[in-house]
Computed example of a mutant assay.
Amino acid sequence: MIAQSQNIPCPVCSTGIPFDTKQLMMGVQFACPNCAASVGLAPESKELVQETMEKLEAAKGKTSK
């Protein structure tokens, strides 16, 4: 899987927080560049997110053929 940088809205100020999906899955937290609030993936959500990412990658593979 290729790491992709994306943004998620800050829960405090709505500024886009850049994050890397691979690092997010590894438990890294990311800080808002505007207010320094941090976001990360809750341990109990990791399995669901992993399954969703695998389905997304499989769907991308089907559409690129």
Results as ranks from 00 to 15, higher is better:
residue 22 K to G: 09
residue 20 D to Y: 10
residue 16 G to V: 05
residue 61 G to F: 03
residue 63 T to A: 13
residue 38 S to T: 15
residue 14 S to K: 10
residue 10 C to V: 13
residue 22 K to C: 08
residue 58 A to C: 01
residue 54 E to H: 05
residue 43 P to A: 15
residue 10 C to R: 12
residue 33 P to T: 01
residue 55 K to S: 01
residue 14 S to T: 12
residue 59 A to I: 00
residue 31 A to C: 10
residue 31 A to D: 11
residue 53 M to R: 02
residue 17 I to A: 05
residue 22 K to R: 13
residue 28 V to Q: 14
residue 56 L to H: 07
residue 39 V to Q: 05
residue 6 Q to Y: 06
residue 62 K to C: 00
residue 30 F to M: 03
residue 58 A to D: 09
residue 51 E to P: 01
residue 9 P to A: 15
residue 47 E to A: 11
residue 51 E to N: 14
residue 48 L to H: 09
residue 28 V to H: 13
residue 42 A to W: 00
residue 49 V to C: 03
residue 8 I to N: 01
residue 15 T to V: 11
residue 27 G to Q: 06
residue 8 I to E: 02
residue 58 A to V: 00
residue 39 V to P: 03
residue 12 V to N: 14
residue 4 Q to P: 00
residue 11 P to L: 07
residue 3 A to P: 07
residue 11 P to T: 06
residue 10 C to I: 14
residue 56 L to T: 08
residue 37 A to D: 12
residue 59 A to G: 08
residue 14 S to A: 12
residue 39 V to M: 09
residue 49 V to S: 03
residue 27 G to T: 05
residue 41 L to G: 05
residue 7 N to T: 14
residue 4 Q to K: 09
residue 11 P to V: 06
residue 47 E to R: 05
residue 4 Q to G: 02
residue 57 E to R: 07
residue 53 M to F: 09
residue 15 T to I: 04
residue 20 D to M: 11
residue 33 P to M: 03
residue 30 F to P: 02
residue 63 T to Y: 08
residue 36 A to S: 15
residue 48 L to A: 14
residue 49 V to Q: 03
residue 14 S to V: 04
residue 50 Q to A: 01
residue 34 N to Y: 12
residue 14 S to G: 02
residue 30 F to G: 02
residue 19 F to T: 03
residue 23 Q to L: 14
residue 63 T to G: 05
residue 25 M to H: 00
residue 33 P to I: 04
residue 25 M to Y: 00
residue 5 S to Q: 06
residue 10 C to L: 12
residue 8 I to W: 05
residue 49 V to R: 03
residue 13 C to T: 06
residue 31 A to R: 10
residue 26 M to V: 04
residue 22 K to V: 15
residue 53 M to S: 07
residue 27 G to L: 09
residue 28 V to N: 11
residue 26 M to A: 15
residue 31 A to E: 13
residue 32 C to F: 06
residue 39 V to F: 08
residue 32 C to N: 08
residue 43 P to D: 15
residue 51 E to V: 01
residue 7 N to H: 13
residue 57 E to S: 08
residue 13 C to K: 08
residue 41 L to Q: 09
residue 44 E to A: 12
residue 12 V to C: 10
residue 16 G to Y: 04
residue 39 V to L: 03
residue 5 S to G: 01
residue 5 S to C: 00
residue 13 C to F: 07
residue 54 E to F: 01
residue 45 S to A: 13
residue 60 K to R: 10
residue 48 L to N: 11
residue 62 K to D: 00
residue 52 T to Q: 07
residue 19 F to P: 02
residue 24 L to I: 04
residue 59 A to L: 10
residue 13 C to E: 06
residue 49 V to M: 11
residue 41 L to I: 08
residue 7 N to P: 01
residue 20 D to T: 14
residue 20 D to E: 15
residue 39 V to R: 03
residue 49 V to I: 09
residue 19 F to G: 03
residue 10 C to Q: 11
residue 54 E to L: 06
residue 42 A to F: 02
residue 7 N to W: 07
residue 59 A to P: 02
residue 46 K to H: 10
residue 41 L to D: 06
residue 9 P to V: 10
residue 41 L to F: 08
residue 12 V to P: 02
residue 57 E to G: 01
residue 11 P to E: 05
residue 10 C to F: 11
residue 63 T to V: 13
residue 40 G to L: 12
residue 12 V to W: 09
residue 35 C to S: 06
residue 22 K to W: 04
residue 63 T to M: 12
residue 45 S to R: 10
residue 51 E to D: 13
residue 32 C to W: 08
residue 34 N to C: 14
residue 8 I to C: 05
residue 18 P to V: 09
residue 13 C to R: 09
residue 62 K to Q: 08
residue 28 V to L: 12
residue 34 N to K: 15
